[in-house]
Amino acid sequence: MNSKLKVSRFDPETMGSGQRRWDEFEMDLHPSATVLDALIQIREEVDGTLALRCACRASICGSCGMRVNGEAKLVCKTRIADVTEEGTTIVIEPMGNHGIIKDLVVSLDPFFDKVRQVDPYLQPDEEPEQGEFVVNNDSMENLLTAMNCIMCGACVSDCTVLEVDEAFIGPAALAKAWRFVEDPRDDQRDERLKELNEVEGGIWDCTRCFKCVEVCPKDVAPMDRIMEMRDMAIEAGNRNTSGYRHTESFSKSVKKHGRLDEARLAVESAGYTNIPRLIDLAEIGVKSVLKGKMPPIVPHKADENEKITRIFERVESERNT
């Protein structure tokens, strides 16, 4: 099959940071060839200077994360035929949100620093006197979702929060944290949740954009793991965070008015006693008014407000049973 590839190139020895060059390659490939097969063929037969990482060729080592047509993928499990049609060009770039070392190779140091930040190892208070920990198999199988993570960085590459906030721990490291929070053998659950709840860039910074779920090649669904930890953190009594207050205010507003009271949400999330943050908000409020974007102080009620209130009551009563 005839294929065209456009590959992003960067050589730190001859180019300034932020620069790039596009190289195009046209080649004849086996119908079931992967993007990795194509890149290896380029490297072996056409241009030995092309830098990329790969090892297993079987979607298990996590080396080959790249952006293909704008989306992070493992190129070893991306078949050419699935990302192109006759005549179109496949665009290959390094992953986003990672510094570029050369061509398609990115630095994963910040990625692993964040993994380190969540104390990613089992911390039992004591070990069994003999043999293994005896725990329910379902609770172990539950962990497999996160254990499938191969640390490829695809989720981090496309995470919309990391794009603007480097401090966010990010989807992969948070999924790793979940794996220990949920492990019945670990005795640091409460401490872990407290930390993830309070720390800068913790569980409340995700905007639920769904990108990480979409691009993860191993179905780890980091966003779902993060949402589960939010619930767990609240249940464990961690309420003194803007994240928790945000959720509370959000649902209170929807329950009462059938829609979101944005002004109140901002103030309540900050907390009525958080003076510096309130001053910030006042500034934003003034600017919004000037631009005509200030939400109404008393929100309009939604037309079928009672129905919404009933939904809330039902969910709450089901939760309590």
Partner: peptide, 20 residues
């Protein structure tokens, strides 16, 4: 193998909660 389990490996288990 027991040591690997204690380090954190989530080996598959039987109904009795012990390694399968």
């Amino acid at each position: 193998v027991i040591e690997l389990e204690r380090m954190g490996v989530i080996f598959s288990r039987g109904e009795d909660g012990r390694l399968g």
